[in-house]
Amino acid sequence: MNAYTIRAHGIGKRFSKKFLFRNIDLELRMGESLCVTGPNGSGKSTLLRILACLLPPTEGTVDHLRDDGIPSTDPWAGYTGPLVNPYPELTVMENLTFASRGNGSLSAGAIIEALGLDEYRNRQVRHCSSGTVQRLRLAAAAVNNPPALILDEPTMNLDDEGKERFERFLDRMRAVRIIIIATNDRSEERICGRVVRLGL
């Protein structure tokens, strides 16, 4: 993958007759990053899901363009968010193996090391703390080596060490990826190049 672009034009989303947001235009290329902020309920999570092609917008279009500028029919972004729950009955390693589709994925082992999940490899998720589960979510999002990482509240539940590991991890990834983050935490805005504020 040499070039990947996410282009959003005129995005709007309506739930039960009320528009959450309208007329959002974005274009992101590899190496660029975006932070979406705003008060609770402003639609950050919804916008991220639309950009990850998990939710269709009410208005506008979202395109993931590959090298040749042609929209991909199989948009591919690593996504995670508070509602993405791994299987409680499976271990950390089993969940990660499930998520890894086995086609040119980054070594699950390397990601586990980077995010500090090593000692929890064989622990069932239902016996893990929320911080560990959050690290697992991030690991699953990255394990398939996607060209874009769309992360909703990535540092939720993480302790200081977790946050540090996350930022280092992101730094290693950002050069050849698009990064989109949604957060309530103002201090995280500095991780990204651009900032979009919703709910104004």
């Binding site: 996504y79 968010g81 509602l83 729950n85 299987y87 409680p88 499930f98 998520a99 589709r101």
Partner: peptide, 11 residues
């Protein structure tokens, strides 16, 4: 119930 359906859908 366990809210794992998004995780499943993603992968």
């Amino acid at each position: 119930e366990r809210r794992t359906e998004t995780f499943l859908r993603l992968y």
